[in-house]
Amino acid sequence: MKTENHAWERLREHAASQISPGFPDRVLRAARAAASPLLISHLAMCAATAAVCLVAVALYDARISGDEDATNIAGWGEIAAQASDLEQGL
């Protein structure tokens, strides 16, 4: 047990020696660098999603109202033709 404890102590010392000088500053720089692109990419993703949704809604709306217009025009055309026939018959 004692030898094992000594080995654990050596393990900790060896691991600690792997941390090179200036480590805390490198971590802080990495944390800053990691934070900003994440925020920017997050905002970019939100903007892209919103744009895709808007385009989809606009396309759907244009298609639906286009179909409705065509149906209405066809209906009015039919009514106009019937009215004209009726006028000629009178």
Binding site: L11, R12, A15, A16, I19, F23, V27, A30
Partner: peptide, 23 residues
């Protein structure tokens, strides 16, 4: 930093990746 390094080394067993993981 040193305590986390020891902890990391005990789990991964690779001293060459200790600093990257601790970071």
């Amino acid at each position: 930093q040193h305590r986390v390094a020891g902890f990391t080394y005990a789990i991964t067993g690779r001293s060459d990746s200790v600093e990257d993981i601790v970071q």
